[in-house]
């Protein structure tokens, strides 16, 4: 009998890992964040571009880029109730892109580094529909090729507000994310992590081990929706100063710009 031990799994181009970024592009992403001339949308776009660049670093081998990671970026709320792929340029309308495709098709450079995602802030927050898209996408990815024998996809949701398409009790959102977390490869179930950013310094919650006693109902909801971090992610989080242990969930509420960057570093490198 084969034992699928995720600790023995090496992410490689023959066994890649999918990372899906769900990006809130609602109107409130125009608000100031991490600096007087910086908006939330700018910070998020920069962080995602940096994270993709770091993924490229881990994929660079002696003979070029190995497709160890595949990346999807799904934006929601740029227009009313619209969910669509956030890739632009040559990658426009692509959903999942290999690292090689990504690095062959940047749209700009900034500080000598390539740029793929541009900031957008538009309308409302159809988070439930975004997760539904992610669910369909992950389902197709897992059933493609040998992906059942690969590391499960990781979904990282970056938002600054509450879902506007899931009612006041967010029942539909809970159901959708529950379905997403039920998807699995032979190694493990799909991971869902949530980072909520805001300029409100009070009431920050980072990688909690139990449900936070926060005034905002949405804080508890995001905790419910988040998966636990694995061992290497916990080690990385501790190295970045978060002081957490086994059982911590991949979730930050009221995070600032450095929390956003750290969260993406922790969540995007499963091994």
């Amino acid at each position: 009998m084969m034992i699928y031990d995720i600790n023995k799994l090496n992410i490689s181009s023959s066994h890649p890992c999918l990372i899906v970024y769900l990006v809130d592009q609602s109107y409130s992403m125009n608000e100031r964040f991490g600096g007087p001339w910086r908006k939330r949308a700018d910070a998020v776009a920069e962080s995602i571009n940096d994270t993709i660049y770091n993924l490229g670093l881990s994929c660079l081998s002696d003979n070029g880029l190995k497709n160890r990671f595949e990346v999807a970026v799904i934006g929601y709320g740029a227009e009313k109730d619209v969910v669509q792929s956030a890739w632009i340029g040559n990658l426009q309308r692509s959903w999942v892109c290999t690292i090689e495709d990504i690095f062959n098709n940047p749209v700009d450079t900034k500080n000598d580094k390539p740029v793929w995602i541009l900031p957008k802030a538009g309308h409302n927050t159809p988070m439930n529909r975004a997760f539904e898209n992610a669910h369909r996408l992950c389902y197709d990815w897992i059933n493609f090729g040998n992906h059942l024998e690969c590391h499960p996809p990781i979904i990282i949701n970056i938002t600054d507000g509450e879902a506007t398409d899931s009612g006041t009790k967010f029942t539909r959102l809970k159901e959708t994310v529950h379905h997403v977390k039920n998807l699995r490869t032979h190694y493990d179930a799909v991971k869902v992590f949530n980072v909520h950013i805001s300029s409100d310094r009070g009431g920050k919650v980072a990688f909690p081990m139990s449900e936070p006693t926060h005034n905002a109902a949405f804080a508890s909801l995001l905790y419910d929706l988040s998966s636990e971090l694995n061992t290497s992610m916990i080690e990385r989080a501790n190295a970045l100063g978060y002081n957490i242990s086994q059982g911590a969930r991949g979730y930050i509420f009221n995070g600032d710009s450095s929390d956003l960057i750290n969260f993406l570093k922790i969540g995007s490198d499963p091994i």
């Binding site: 799904i74 619209v82 969910v83 669509q84 792929s85 309308r93 692509s94 959903w95 999942v96 529909r129 898209n133 369909r136 996408l137 197709d140 990815w141 493609f144």
Partner: peptide, 15 residues
């Protein structure tokens, strides 16, 4: 390929 609403449809994986 035109994908209608712009949302992900089955089969669009490596569109």
């Amino acid at each position: 390929k035109e994908s209608g609403t712009g949302e992900y449809q089955s089969g669009d994986l490596y569109n």
